[in-house]
């Protein structure tokens, strides 16, 4: 068991390292570097920079070093000092810019994830037990449509309906009076009032997918021999269902928790952009459009980090619920 945890931990660290390389490559990908774009801006502002100044600047920033040295200093700065580079557009350190908005993204992602499971598990089990019933058909039809609707389109539709029926914008996460207010209970309450729309948008497809998974794995388990064996022992249907197939069906669901998180995090930026949420979504898109690459790379890194940690946590949870994995390596 310890070996299992250890190997998953090592795997997590390796994945993080690989992701950091990818993020760094993304930063380096656009032609020209930070100094170039700085020179460009100065040019446009009517105060061109001299070649000498430019070289100086490159030297100071380490941009004249080979890429592996640059990568090394980027990573070590990040790990040692939490310094993720400088955002040109915001004229602030990347870590500060992201830090302002990250909590909202996380609040959104985790409440979506939580609600997804809360809704999908009972429905999935019910659909499996009442396979081919009207309710089952209803949920699977709804699920198909939910899966087929891109979440930005869902956001647009909800926003249109909100406009039409309530005459108000359903975008954003706060009412105007709380927009720039400091954190307070009122502001939290206001956030929760606004959060449900983006949660629906972000969670619909995932919930549909999860219902199908729960239904399929419960059905799978219901057909297993041990279920009949337990029935032959005289257990009541409800107790039997909850104790054996449902409990077993939870395994693959917990095991893919990390992937679900990946999925939600993956969809978050686009929902943030469409609904103009004050989270990291619009920040990320603008950094991409403006080639503010340290910020963009930092965002990619953060998005990946959360899913990688999420996967690690779901591995640990799996150990808790499945004795077969716990026994490995003992």
């Amino acid at each position: 068991m310890i070996r299992f945890v250890f190997s998953r931990f090592v795997y997590m660290v390796l994945t993080m390292a690989a992701v950091s390389v990818i993020a760094f490559i993304l930063i380096q990908l656009p032609p020209g570097d930070f100094a170039d774009s700085y020179a460009n801006k100065r040019q446009q502002a009517g105060a061109p920079i001299t070649t000498e100044e430019l070289d100086n600047m490159r030297h100071q920033l380490g941009l004249d070093q080979p890429w592996h040295i640059q990568y090394g200093s980027w990573v070590s700065n990040m790990v040692l000092r939490g310094d993720m580079g400088y955002s040109w557009e915001w004229r602030r350190p990347v870590a500060d810019v992201i830090g302002d908005r990250l909590p909202l993204t996380l609040a959104l992602a985790f409440s979506t994830l939580f609600l997804m499971y809360l809704i999908a598990i009972p429905i999935g089990i019910y659909s499996a037990v009442r396979q081919y019933s009207a309710t089952d058909h209803l949920f699977s039809t709804a699920g198909y449509v939910g899966l087929a609707t891109p979440n930005f389109l869902l956001a647009l539709i909800l926003m249109y309906l909100g406009q039409k029926w309530f005459g108000q914008s359903v975008g954003g996460l706060f009412s105007p009076e709380y927009q720039d207010a400091p954190w307070s209970w009122g502001r939290v309450g206001n956030l929760i009032e606004h959060l449900w729309v983006p949660v629906i948008v972000l969670g619909t497809a995932g919930t549909a997918y999860l219902i199908r998974t729960v239904r399929a794995s419960t059905l799978d388990e219901l057909d297993k021999m041990y279920v009949m064996a337990a029935r032959a022992g005289g257990l009541s249907p409800m107790r039997l269902l909850l104790k054996y197939p449902v409990r077993m069906a939870l395994n693959p669901i917990v095991a893919t928790l990390g992937w679900r998180l990946t999925y939600v995090i993956s969809g978050a930026p686009i929902v943030g952009v469409v609904m103009s949420l004050p989270d990291t979504g619009p920040l990320f898109l603008h950094s991409l459009l403006n080639q503010d690459m340290y910020l963009a790379g930092g965002m990619v890194l953060i998005y990946c980090a959360f899913t990688i940690i999420g996967t690690f946590i779901s591995d640990l949870l799996l150990i808790l619920i499945d004795p077969r994995i716990r026994m490995q390596g003992n």
């Binding site: 297993k224 021999m225 041990y226 009949m228 064996a229 337990a230 029935r231 032959a232 022992g233 005289g234 257990l235 009541s236 054996y244 409990r247 077993m248 395994n251 619920i321 499945d322 004795p323 077969r324």
Partner: peptide, 22 residues
């Protein structure tokens, strides 16, 4: 249910899958 496993019980073909693994 009061007969199953009590007055009449059953053994199955596949011992490997007749017990819940968890």
């Amino acid at each position: 249910r009061s007969i199953r496993g009590n007055q009449m019980s059953m053994i199955f073909q596949e011992p490997m899958s007749s017990f819940s693994p968890i």
